[in-house]
Computed example of a mutant assay.
Amino acid sequence: MEGLIFYWSCWAFWIYLTFILEKQNPFRVKLATIVLIALILSNIQFMVGEFEIQASGLFILCICYLFISQEKRGGIIYFFICSFIITIAYVTFHLFEIFDPIWIVFKKEWMMGIALWYLAILLQKTLKGRLIIIFAGGMQGEILYAYILNKFQFPYLIGEFAYLDVCSLTALLLAGWSTLENAGTILQNHFHFFEKGKQKSS
C-alpha cells in the first residue's frame, strides 16, 4: 500500500516530538507543526496548468527552500547543487525503470531509498542538510519527471505517495546512520557521567 511508510514514519516522529523530546527544545513545536500539516495535505491534489500536484509534496519543497534560504550565500549555492544531483539521480532511476525494468531486482522504494541515502551521506555532513537535499531534490525530480512524461502525454501525479514513501524511508535510513555516527560520543558521555558518579561516591 503506497503511503504506508510515510504515514507510519510521520506519526512516529510526531509522537516523539510531542511526548518524548524535551519541551525546552526550540525546534520541537515547529517540526511537529510541519509534520502535522504534511499529513493533512497528503490527500489534497490540485492542478497547475497541465500538471496535477499533491499538496504535501509542494509544502515540503517550500519548507526545504525556507531552510536553505537561511544559509549563507555559499551554503545556498552548495545546497542547490546537492539537491540538483539528487534530482538527476531520482529522474534517472525512474526513466531506467520505464525503459529497462528488468534491473529492478527488489522493491523499487528500497532500491531508490538506499541509492539516495548513499548520495546524501556523500554530499552533506549533517542530518539536517541530508534531509533537506533528499526532500527538495526528490520533489524537484518529481516535477522534472512529470514534465518529461507530459511530452509523451502520460499523466503523472507530482509528489504522490510513492515519492513520500521513498523520502520517508531515506529519512529513516539517514536518522539511523546519524545515530551510528554519534554513538561514540553518546557512549563516551554516558560512561563519563557514570565515572563522575563513582568518583563522587568514593
Rank of each mutant, 00 (worst) to 15 (best):
S168A: 04
Q140D: 11
F96P: 08
G159I: 08
Y145T: 06
Y145I: 06
I132F: 00
L164C: 03
M112Y: 00
L144F: 11
F161T: 09
G141Q: 06
C167L: 08
L127F: 01
A136D: 13
I158E: 03
V166Y: 07
I98A: 15
L95P: 02
Y156F: 08
L122E: 12
P101C: 04
K125A: 07
D165A: 01
M111C: 06
I143T: 10
E160R: 10
K107R: 09
I114N: 02
I98M: 15
Y156G: 08
I104E: 00
L157G: 10
F161I: 13
L127S: 03
A115K: 00
M139R: 04
F96I: 14
I104A: 07
L169I: 02
Q153M: 15
A162L: 13
L169Y: 04
A136M: 15
G113R: 02
Q140I: 11
R130Y: 05
E160Y: 09
G138I: 07
L122N: 14
A146N: 06
F161D: 09
E142G: 10
Y147C: 15
F135V: 07
I134N: 01
K128S: 11
I134V: 01
G138K: 09
K151N: 09
L144V: 15
G138Y: 06
Q124R: 03
Y163G: 06
G129Q: 07
V166C: 05
L127Q: 04
G137E: 05
F96N: 15
Q124F: 01
L172Q: 14
E142N: 12
K151H: 14
S168F: 04
D100M: 07
C167K: 13
W110D: 05
E97C: 13
F152E: 10
F106C: 08
I102G: 09
V166E: 01
F96W: 08
Y118W: 08
A162H: 15
A136I: 09
Q140H: 13
M139W: 02
F152S: 14
P101M: 03
S168M: 00
I98K: 15
L131C: 01
G137D: 00
L149S: 00
G159M: 11
F154G: 11
A162T: 10
A146F: 06
D165E: 05
L164W: 03
I104W: 08
G141D: 13
E109A: 07
G159F: 12
W117M: 05
F152D: 08
G159H: 13
K108Q: 10
E109R: 11
P101H: 07
A171P: 05
A162G: 14
A171N: 04
W103D: 08
M112Q: 05
R130F: 03
C167H: 10
Y156A: 13
L123G: 03
L116V: 07
L123D: 02
F154E: 15
L172K: 09
F99P: 06
F99G: 01
Y147K: 12
F99K: 10
E109P: 12
L127W: 03
G129S: 06
Y163I: 14
K107M: 10
I134T: 04
L95W: 09
Q140M: 15
F99E: 05
I121C: 14
Y145Q: 07
I134M: 01
A120I: 00
Q153A: 12
L127P: 04
L164I: 04
I132T: 03
I102H: 13
A146Y: 04
P101K: 02
F106M: 09
G138L: 04
L164P: 05
P101I: 00
Q124T: 05
L131S: 02
L95F: 06
L95G: 07
